[in-house]
Amino acid sequence: MKTVVIYLFVVVFGCLSACVEKPDFDQFDDIDAIPTIDASLIYVESPERIINQAAGINFYSQDFVFDPFNEDFVQERLVDAIIRYEVDNTTSKPLDFTVELLDAGDNVLDTENFDIAPAPSPILIREITYGPGGRPLDILRNTVTVRLSATNLGDNTSVSSLPDPKIIIRSSARFRIRLK
């Protein structure tokens, strides 16, 4: 019986001596889950022969719905963004390319203009920051339409000596979303 009591004491004492270092669950509020996303946006390509065939100097102009940043989830959680443009002109002529961001009332929120030198010219790279230290983030949040327009500032006959001459505009976004 004495042995039983001793064993019981050991077990009970052992259990009672268990402790839990008190966690601080308030730290949950401090969690910042903010992934950085890279995503392609818009790619525009036009061969030089199409530019030459255009009747006027404005060889392309179009508005279309583009509202990835206007989606509720993104709009509410977008922290900042960098839009990157890469312009590669292998045609023989100088060009002008404009990207306009429009809101639901067709008001122009932002304009990015590219004055593009004829080939040979280096790839033009431009990064536009939206958010802290850059342009207002609301520009992206409220954009529902993109207007693209391209103008030929040269002639309609010359053809570049480079193979398959064309104007290419690439774009991507690097943006941060607050998931928590």
Binding site: I42, E45, P47, I50, Y60, Q62
Partner: peptide, 22 residues
């Protein structure tokens, strides 16, 4: 596989009202 919205001329001229993003 996607590389985003692609506006490739002259195909894009065939449908001036095309909603590329949608």
């Amino acid at each position: 596989t996607t590389e985003g919205v692609e506006v490739i001329l002259p195909d894009a001229l065939a449908d001036p009202d095309s909603e590329f993003w949608e």
